[in-house]
């Protein structure tokens, strides 16, 4: 469990990092290393050069950009978890962050690293997809931006070009007063990768009717799924479990679920439905508590 030989660079700016990436097709960025280092130890990843961006100051921040919160790519998950802006304005992200790995891995793992890794079972990826976050990166001296709906392409595959450096994740802030969230995941052991996860964020009017909803399913398929049809069906409605279940079932009907050592496709299909309903119910309840 020793990695294959590699070079190591620690650039002091994003542009310098990009230049190092551009000069070597085998170069890879490293920030928290919580996924990459074990893969390298097993020689399943064999970068020729590691470009360590963890200490570039411009990449670690949490910023209120008015209408959205931007989180710098190398912001540690643990820092985001305890950030007051995240806690007050991004309730869904705040809700899922404690489920990301373990405390020890969150202390090193980064928000951007999780996004760039593009694992459909990752909680941060699920929230980015569910809320429609925007990903920004820098490449060749230029900045680019892309919505999450276009960014996640397949299992651990994203639209991020190889010589690019992800710079931030911008999560939309919901201005409504009554916003609630729900999150459920199933795994064999606490803190393992989920077999299936479901996230919901819902805004209610003063009568308890849904004015906006976002629902996502993680870990079940190649990429995180957004159940927009379910969200639309709830608009103007209070929580009605049977209706939610029916629309979620319809939305999941055509999805191709994954099967692996730990869970069958049938398990994922059934449990995705169960968890979607539970997450939505929780989100309604959570929102209803707010005045």
């Amino acid at each position: 469990m020793k990695p294959a030989p590699f070079e190591y660079s620690r650039p002091s700016s994003v542009d310098e990092a990009c230049a190092l990436l551009a000069a070597d097709d085998g170069a890879r960025l490293i920030a928290g290393g919580q996924t990459l280092v074990p893969l390298m130890a097993m020689r399943l990843a064999r970068p020729t050069r590691l470009v360590d961006i963890a200490r570039i100051p411009e990449l670690a921040f949490v910023r209120d950009e008015g209408g959205r919160i931007a989180i710098g790519a190398t912001t540690r998950q643990y820092v985001a978890e305890h950030d007051p802006l995240v806690r007050s304005k991004l309730p869904l992200l705040a809700r899922v962050l404690p489920y990301v790995g373990h405390g020890a891995t969150r202390a090193r793992g980064t928000v951007g690293g999780s996004i760039a890794n593009g694992d459909a079972a990752a909680e941060i990826v699920l929230v980015a997809a569910t809320l429609g976050a925007t990903l920004t990166w820098r490449e060749g001296g230029n900045d680019f931006e892309m919505p999450a709906s276009e960014f996640f392409l397949g299992p651990m595959v994203t639209a991020l070009p190889l010589p690019a450096c992800l710079t931030s994740v911008r999560f939309p802030v919901w201005p409504e007063r009554r916003v609630g969230t729900g999150f459920h995941e199933v795994n064999a052991r606490q803190s393992d990768f989920a077999f299936v996860s479901a996230a919901a964020q819902i805004a209610l009017d003063t009568d308890g009717r849904c004015t906006r909803a976002a629902i996502g399913i993680g870990a079940a398929a190649a990429i995180p799924l957004r159940l927009d049809a379910v969200a639309e069906a709830m608009l103007g409605m209070p929580f009605e479990e049977a209706k939610v279940r029916a629309s979620a079932m319809a939305a999941l009907a055509d999805i191709e679920f994954m099967a692996d050592l730990h869970a069958s496709a049938d398990y994922r299909r059934r449990v995705a439905l169960t968890l979607a309903v539970r997450a939505i119910a929780d989100a309604f309840q959570d929102a209803a508590r707010r005045v």
């Binding site: 199933v186 064999a188 077999f195 730990h262 869970a263 069958s264 049938d266 398990y267 059934r270 449990v271």
Partner: peptide, 11 residues
């Protein structure tokens, strides 16, 4: 008796 095996059996 793994979680998912139990889940599948119950279903």
């Amino acid at each position: 008796m793994k979680v998912t095996r139990l889940g599948d059996a119950i279903a």
